[in-house]
């Protein structure tokens, strides 16, 4: 006997979504970003200037492009530490092509192809052989950059064609750089992909419980493979921007960027354990990282101090949510 009328109606939501948004991590990031912005403008008279602010965006656009794809990968419970090495390898391949007389469209295809190939290699090792991604990508981190060192030694490739300069140095309109536009478009695409498609939904399912996701008919390995390919692809695209901006390739290009990218993602509220996080959060974190490094640069703080700062920030944002949960459990 089923008496439908006695069954309680279950509402979709209890909390007002606007109220929930107000108390979210993203809101906190906005507050932090505004605070750093104000601090920067007080600390340096050169900061509040449209061209300064335009230059500032270059501090996060290239890393941000990778962080968008890395966010999806970390939500799915995996990680790719080889992204900076993929930049180096892609850049080296482009440099070799330049020596052979290749023109801009060919260079772009080579960088994208190299990035994608690296992503496929990482993805295949993780999903086909079932190896842990952290180990695989520490290995490929050395491998990819090692190839660059073998090819280049202590040399540098220069002589990129004039048209190639647009990607890293060009402006679409007034102070709005090509890189900034590219980052905004990519952020929109990745935001829609993660938050508005069924593919994005499966990423969260995998990150929260890969076994149950498999049992729910989610092609877990295929999704992870695609995410590694996307991360490789975005690293290749970032390599185009960076190489164009520097107008040269050295094997040490983008050295240590993997940590800054991961820091960006985790600061953006993506759980390092997988299963939670948002693209708006990552975009805000990218802006904050840009504001901080640019501000420290204006104050003539040396690079080594910035690297200490990045390390401390990474540890703090990883530890905070874990410690917070532990405290809450003790209180309960």
């Amino acid at each position: 006997m089923t008496v439908a009328s006695t069954r309680p109606h279950i509402p979709d939501r209890l909390e007002n979504p606007w109220r929930m948004a107000l108390f979210s991590w993203e809101t906190l990031l906005i507050v932090v970003a505004v605070a750093i912005f104000i601090a920067n403008s007080l600390a340096s008279p050169y900061f509040l200037n449209v061209w300064s602010l335009s230059d500032l965006t270059f501090n996060f656009t290239e890393k941000g492009l990778i962080a968008l794809a890395m966010a999806l990968l970390i939500v799915a419970g995996e990680i790719d530490l080889s992204v900076a090495a993929i930049i180096a390898l892609s850049s080296t391949m482009m440099g070799m092509a330049v020596q052979a007389g290749a023109d801009t469209p060919v260079l772009v295809l080579i960088a994208i192809g190299t990035g994608l190939a690296c992503g496929i290699f990482n993805g295949a090792l993780v999903t086909r052989l079932g190896l842990p991604s952290i180990v695989v990508t520490i290995g490929t981190m050395s491998l990819f950059r090692g190839i660059s060192y073998i090819i280049l030694g202590d040399q540098a490739y220069k002589g990129y064609p004039a048209g190639f300069a647009f990607f890293g140095q060009g402006y679409v309109w007034w102070v709005i750089s090509f890189e900034l536009v590219l980052f905004i478009v990519a952020a929109f695409v990745f935001g829609v992909l993660l938050h508005r498609t069924s593919f994005g939904r499966t990423i969260y399912a995998i990150g929260n419980n890969p076994v149950a996701a498999t049992f729910s008919g989610v092609p877990v390995e295929r999704v992870k493979f695609i995410l590694f390919c996307l991360t490789g692809l975005m690293s290749g695209i970032a390599s185009i921007c960076l190489t164009s901006r520097l107008a040269s390739t050295r094997p040490s290009i983008a050295f240590g960027w993997e940590l800054e990218v991961v820091t960006m993602v985790v600061l953006g509220g993506v759980s390092i354990l997988g299963g939670a996080g948002s693209i708006p959060g990552v975009v805000l974190a990218a802006i904050i990282m840009g504001l901080v490094t640019f501000g420290l640069g204006l104050l003539n703080v040396p690079g080594i101090v910035m690297s200490i700062f990045t390390g401390l920030l990474l540890i703090t944002v990883i530890a905070l949510p874990i410690l917070w949960n532990r405290l809450r459990q003790k209180g309960a």
């Binding site: 969260y204 419980n209 989610v218």
Partner: peptide, 21 residues
Amino acid sequence: GRQGAIAGLPIFQNITLPALK
């Protein structure tokens, strides 16, 4: 707990996961 429910996802997302099509 391990194979069935996906803790961390809301109820409605658990229910629709295999029926997302």
